[in-house]
Structures are given as structure tokens and as C-alpha cells.
Design a protein around this nucleic acid. Sequence first.
DNA 1: CGGGGTTCCTGGCCGC
DNA 2: TGCGGCCAGGAACCCC
Length: 273
Amino acid sequence: MPELPEVESIRRQLEPLILGKTFLNGHSFPSYKFKQGELASGCRVKAVNRRGKYLIIAVEKQQSGRKMLKELIIHLGMAGSIAVTKEKLEDPYVRAEWELNNGLILIFRDVRRFGRIAFVDPGNYRSLPTLNNIGPEPFDPDLTADSFYKSLSSSKSQLKTKLLSQKVVAGLGNIYVDESLWRAKVNPTVRRIGRKRSEILLLSIRKVLSEAINNGGTTLRDYRTPDGLTGENQHNLDCYGRQGKPCRICSSTLKNRVIGQRSTTWCPQCQIR
DNA sequence: CGGGGTTCCTGGCCGC
DNA sequence: TGCGGCCAGGAACCCC
């Protein structure tokens, strides 16, 4: 479900709600995927950060008389959502909840259980291999046309797969990869592209993501911000989910097929191989 | 080690 | 109405 724009929208709403607050206690659904959430009990929130699609809550814990810095990491998987409520929910899909010292409750809900919660020493991401090997943030100024081109060139898989891997650039998922490739007029099955085309692709990725963030994320079904509202970027999609419909540039019928185990939509004319 | 396939989950929707 | 089959914003894991 949530890709970078959705997680960033959640982060922005969550920050003022929990910054400086203390988790009095935490409960988790009995699964190794969520169990570590309980370890955040007694922690005070120092910052609400994001890396790629991972929400990283920096906390401080009193342990044997000393202050320890820790990170509570939440990954929303395909269908995860976060809410801050006044009362506990009678909801079978709540996978973790933390009572705050202002009486409110932070809730992590995830119907499909594809999400994950980890409680780690700062920067120790060994239990989350994708985060541990994650590529640059898309808006990091150190990510340049040159470094992006080099990074793309270092792998032989199809472009679609490379962009989904999180290693070339962090935060793209199935929606925004299709949108970015469409805007850059790059075919998803191509294995290498030139310097100039990769520069256009990087610009397209940045444009697609910043628009989506400005629109509060894309709601297809589950995605909600902590206040329960949907995003609006679903009205801004040009390619994802539009198979069978006319391309907004050339009017060709958009195609769809599975590439790298993921449903992929593209324009056979604009994105010709 | 890189790349590709499989698996984890549940619910919604479509067609019969 | 009931049910099987298929699909879904992701990534960990396993096996070449």
C-alpha cells in the first residue's frame, strides 16, 4: 500500500500528535512481525522521521538509570494504517497499540499483516534488510543525474524491478514506478538507459512524488492519514490502473502485464522499447 | 552475491 | 445467495 508520499503524509500528521509524548505501555498482536512494538513502553518520542517507506520514530528510554536512544520502526506493508484515537478500538485488525501520557492511543492497524514493527538501536537495521541496504532519498541533493545513472547501470534487471528494489532510490512502489516511467517515456522492461534518459527519469520521479505528497498521497482503498482522511492523488494518476484507457499524451490504449511479479501499466507508443 | 521466484495474509470483486 | 478464482500501495526469504 503506502509508498513514500503516503508514509510522508502520515509522518507529517503524526509528528505534532506524538512528539514529546511518552508511550506508557504497548500491546502487540502475537506475531514476530509486531511483537517488538511492546518494547517501546516507557519511551519518550524525540523525533518522527521517515526513510523510504519506513516510519522511524526516534525515542529515549530510561534504562538502569541511564538514557538510551532507540528507534521504533513501523513499516505499513500493503494495507497498514496509523491512527491516534481517544479510546481503544474493538477492531480485530489492530496489530499494535501504545497508550500515550496525554490519554490518547496510537494504533497500528494492518488487515493483511504484511507490515512490520521493529525496536532497534539507532541505525541498526539488520533485521530489516531492505532498510539496511536502502538507496538515497529521492530529494537528497547528493542524488545527482550522474550518481543515479551510475547506480542504474550497475544492475542488469529490468528497470521496473530496479526501481522497486529500493536500492537505486528509496520510496517508490508500484504506483509511482509506473507513473514515473510513463512521464519519462521509458519502457519498464528495458534493462539499461542512457545518461540523458536517466536524467529525465530522475526529474520525473521527483515530479511524480512531489505532486503526490502535495496531494496527500494516493488512496486506492485502505490508505488513510492518522486523522482518517483519504488522499487525493488518485485523481492525478496518468498511468497506474489506467490499462485499456487512452494515453493522455498520444491516445494509444495503455497496456498492462506482469513484469517482475508486479502488475505493470505502460503506453506502447510513448514508452516503446 | 545478484537476480528471480515464492511466500506471507485477508478482503473485495467478478463470474458462474 | 454461494463459492471459487483472481487481484491488491511490499518485502523477507530461499535457491540457484
